[in-house]
């Protein structure tokens, strides 16, 4: 079932220009810089990375909530990036989004009924009676009831609001949902409820998720494949289990090792990275990770690494794995 490609992202770029005043040169922030990946139908594909790595911008650019600077987003054979406004709008019924902040993503002046009715209305689905039936059915699926129809968002808790946000995304029965940190704003006990709901909905409706998160334990639990992003670029892609068992890229290794232990007796070997993530406005030359990389080579400073493929579609962009006859010099370039 997982052989059909649903979405292909090719050389996607999103640059922001920041004006520095009239005669100064503009600063270019490369939020998303040449990103490539494919998502298969029915799978959960994760984008993971730290804040500012461009994972959210990637998600928003795919849905054209942010206009891409360059590149293609091919969804079921159609290139979304060059689609006229009206066609894109009507295609949105097949691809929806769940937002991180359930407090900000619902209009405070609308009732739940209005919020859930809107997608059906704008895409002209069903007649009036049928719509209400659908909405009530949907509310029940996400664990609320028709009793809540006339309530306003502020009357709900964070977890309940996120359920409403999910209901709004699923009610059009899309094929594809981008979930941007859907559980990050929630408490642990509520987080598990929402994750369960998302897993159940996926089974029920055959959804494909693009799951954007910084939380590695959630990613490990519910995704099939993972792409690790660093400074606007994808540095490693692998099956989830494969990635957690055998991370290749030094950044992924450090990221995984930084996850706190689950039990106090657990001993963990830490790779503590030095320094902070550099600014995407002024990324390091060569491999963007080289100033923090414990294994950086001389070549890393100058040349951007090409992806190396391992077994089962596991790829990593790192010079360490490029079979190179040239002399390999280990450099301690970090301070």
């Amino acid at each position: 079932m997982k052989n059909e490609v649903l979405l292909t992202v090719k050389n996607l770029k999103k640059y922001y220009e920041i004006s520095q005043g009239m005669f100064k040169e503009k600063i270019v922030v490369r939020a998303v810089d040449d990103v490539n990946f494919t998502v298969m139908r029915g799978e959960t594909f994760a984008l993971v990375g730290e804040s500012g790595c461009g994972k959210s911008t990637t998600g928003r650019t795919i849905l054209r909530l942010v206009e891409p600077t360059a590149g293609e987003v091919i969804f079921k054979g159609t290139n979304l990036a060059s689609l006229p406004y009206e066609q894109m709008r009507s295609l949105r019924k097949q691809m929806q989004m769940v937002f991180q902040d359930p407090y900000a993503s619902l209009n405070p002046k609308k009732t739940i009924l209005q919020i859930l009715m809107e997608p059906l209305k704008v895409h002209n689905k069903f007649d009036k009676k049928e719509r209400l039936r659908k909405i009530i059915a949907m509310l029940k699926i996400v664990g609320l009831s028709e009793y809540h129809l006339d309530r306003y968002p502020h009357e709900f808790s964070g977890g309940q609001r996120q359920r409403i946000g999910i209901a709004r995304a699923v009610i059009l029965q899309p094929d594809f949902i981008i979930a941007d940190e859907p559980v990050s704003a929630l408490d642990v006990s509520v987080q598990s409820q929402v994750i369960n709901l998302m897993l159940e909905l996926q089974k029920e409706f055959g959804l494909t998720y693009l799951f954007i998160s910084h939380d590695l334990s959630v990613i490990q639990h519910m995704t099939d494949r993972v792409a690790v992003m660093y400074l606007g670029k994808i540095v490693e892609v692998a099956d989830t289990e494969d990635l957690f068992r055998n991370p290749k890229h030094p950044y992924t290794q450090a990221l995984l090792s930084a996850v706190p232990v689950a039990h106090p007796k657990e001993e963990k070997k830490r790779i503590i990275l030095k320094g902070d993530v550099p600014s995407p406005a002024n990324p390091p030359s060569g491999c963007a990770f080289h100033p923090r990389c414990p294994f950086a080579l001389e070549i890393c400073k100058t040349k951007m690494p090409e992806p190396t493929t391992f077994e089962k579609g596991h790829t990593a962009n790192c010079h360490l794995y490029i079979k190179n006859e040239e002399e390999i010099e280990y450099v301690t370039s970090y301070s």
Binding site: S189, S192, L199, S217, A262
Partner: peptide, 24 residues
């Protein structure tokens, strides 16, 4: 107990997570 059981790392991958019903 519920808090600990609901951590994803304490559940089998892809399985239904343990969750505490209701809200505070």
């Amino acid at each position: 107990q519920g808090l600990m059981k609901s951590l994803p790392s304490n559940n089998e991958r892809k399985s239904k997570l343990f969750s505490i019903d209701g809200q505070v």
